[in-house]
Amino acid sequence: MQLNSLIERVEIPARQARSVRVGAGRRVRVTTETGGQVGDLFAFTGDDLAEHLSAAHTRAHVGRLFPAVGEQFVTDLREPILTLIEDASPGRHDMLIPACDPARYRALGVVGAHASCAENLRRVAGPLGREIDVVPQPVNVFMDIPVDQEGDLAWLRSPAAAGASITFEAVRECVVIVSACPQDLVDINGGTPKPLVLEYAAHMEGSVRS
């Protein structure tokens, strides 16, 4: 599936996050070029980024744990924000697990600082004029968290091979923020966090990118 014209490429270093502004009708693709790397994806609308993609509202909207190709993600105001256009991966993604944060790493035995998706989001959103008080539930692309018949979760290594990608189309102009998850204590990234790549169609001069 081709992106729109004026393609921009943004490399997301391991353990860090980047943001892009995507115009309505434009597409954005997340790729794990090395394979096996989870990405926490957030999306916000409005100049003040007050409305955000909501995993919980999306599950209710589509009646599934994760949208199928052609279905939409919605915001906390139940408005469409992204459409899943193409999934060139094994199709294992998650919308149950919250973004990792300092408390999560302390619980896993980390002493001192450790990068996290929650802090990555706050760091990237700050220059955009948005202070994040409550971190939204992310869309965890390439993350495999199956639920068994007893309701138990399994934390599996990402099955996404090198070059796997997932492509979204913006229903409305939005800021998309993706964190290359720093998790190295649970095996979702194979023990070694790796970079991700964002490709998007710039919709105007001066598109947000940080």
Rank of each mutant, 00 (worst) to 15 (best):
E131W: 05
R27H: 05
D148L: 11
S207I: 06
Q2H: 10
T31W: 02
R18Q: 11
A103C: 01
D184C: 03
P90D: 06
A125V: 11
E150I: 06
D94F: 06
D47A: 01
G46V: 10
W155H: 06
V110M: 07
Y200A: 15
H203M: 05
P136V: 04
G112P: 07
H114D: 01
P127R: 06
S158R: 08
R92N: 04
V62I: 10
G191E: 02
T45D: 11
T83P: 04
F73S: 09
F168M: 08
T45L: 00
G191P: 00
S179L: 11
V69F: 03
A43T: 15
Q183E: 14
A17L: 07
E199F: 09
G23S: 15
R209S: 04
P136E: 00
Q149W: 09
A14S: 08
V139C: 08
V197L: 14
S207F: 12
E169M: 08
S165V: 12
R64L: 04
D87K: 08
S179R: 13
G35D: 12
V69P: 08
R9P: 00
D152Y: 15
G35E: 02
A113N: 13
S116I: 06
V171E: 14
Q2G: 11
L65D: 08
M95S: 07
R59P: 00
A201K: 13
R122M: 09
E71V: 12
L53P: 15
V171C: 09
F66K: 12
E173A: 15
T31K: 05
V208P: 06
A160W: 13
R209Y: 06
V139M: 06
D187M: 09
V141H: 08
N189W: 13
Q72L: 06
G151V: 12
A161Q: 07
E119A: 13
Q183Y: 00
K194I: 05
L185F: 04
A170N: 08
Q183F: 02
M1A: 13
A99E: 01
A180K: 10
L108C: 11
I188W: 00
P146Q: 07
V134C: 12
I188V: 14
N4S: 09
F42Y: 15
G70K: 07
A99R: 03
R123T: 14
A88V: 12
R130F: 02
A115I: 12
E33G: 12
V74D: 03
D48H: 03
V141W: 01
I7G: 03
R92P: 01
E79Q: 09
R21I: 14
A201N: 15
L6C: 07
R26I: 01
H52V: 03
A170K: 14
S210Q: 14
T32Q: 11
V69C: 02
T167Y: 04
D48F: 02
R92Q: 09
P98V: 04
S158A: 09
R130L: 12
P13R: 03
T75D: 00
Y200G: 00
S210G: 12
T31C: 05
G191H: 05
V62E: 00
